[in-house]
Computed example of a mutant assay.
Amino acid sequence: MIIERIVGNLAEVDCTKRHMEKVYLASDDLVKRIQRVTTDHGKEIGIRLKEPKDLLDGDILYMDERNVIAIQVRADDLLVIRPTSIRQMGEIAHQLGNRHLPAQFEGEEMLVQYDYLVEELLLQLGIPYERSNRTVKQAFRHIGHHHG
């Protein structure tokens, strides 16, 4: 089976009366438009998206009257950063930007993939954080950039 488009997302479609199969992906794989995956029931699927769109947690790859195949993102090892002031937010955002590290935001929290050097920096700056395994909704996208 070759999947060329996303049918919907589990957050928006009621699939409770259908047999559910999951494709477990690392967050890094969400940016790949072409890949071969296997469901948790052993079914091989090719993904070849026609649109240049990142995959998201809960995206439905296939759905008929009885069956659904959807993406579930595996948990990432993350640093969950909780600055207590705009100054702390500015300091850590500047430092992470200098390292070209992608970040995501959920409410008042900044999420970055675990890096021991970033953890040391957070300790030096006295910025509250915790290390946590969490599922992110979208890929950490690295933005191509070079200093010239």
Rank of each mutant, 00 (worst) to 15 (best):
I6Y: 02
R33C: 12
R99S: 09
H147F: 06
S27C: 11
Q124T: 12
E65R: 15
C15F: 07
I81T: 09
L10N: 06
E109F: 02
R66I: 07
N98F: 09
H146S: 07
D77P: 01
E44A: 01
E44P: 08
G148M: 05
H41T: 13
K50M: 08
D59I: 02
E106C: 10
R36D: 12
I143R: 07
V112W: 00
R131Y: 02
I2Q: 15
E51A: 14
P102M: 12
E12Q: 05
Y129L: 04
D59Y: 14
S27R: 03
N133M: 13
Y129F: 15
Q72S: 13
D57S: 01
H100Y: 11
V136G: 05
Y24E: 07
R99E: 12
D14F: 06
T39Q: 06
E120K: 14
A11V: 07
Q35C: 10
R141A: 08
E44D: 10
I86R: 15
V136Q: 13
I71S: 02
M20V: 06
G126D: 06
E51I: 05
G148Q: 14
R99Y: 11
I45C: 09
R66T: 10
R36S: 13
K43L: 09
A75C: 05
V7M: 14
L117F: 11
E106K: 13
L96Q: 01
I69N: 00
A70D: 01
Q113G: 00
V31N: 05
M110C: 04
A103R: 08
N67C: 02
Y114F: 15
I127S: 00
R74I: 06
N133F: 08
N67Q: 08
N98I: 13
T135S: 08
R131I: 11
H146F: 10
L78F: 03
V23F: 00
A75W: 05
A11Q: 07
G107W: 14
T38M: 04
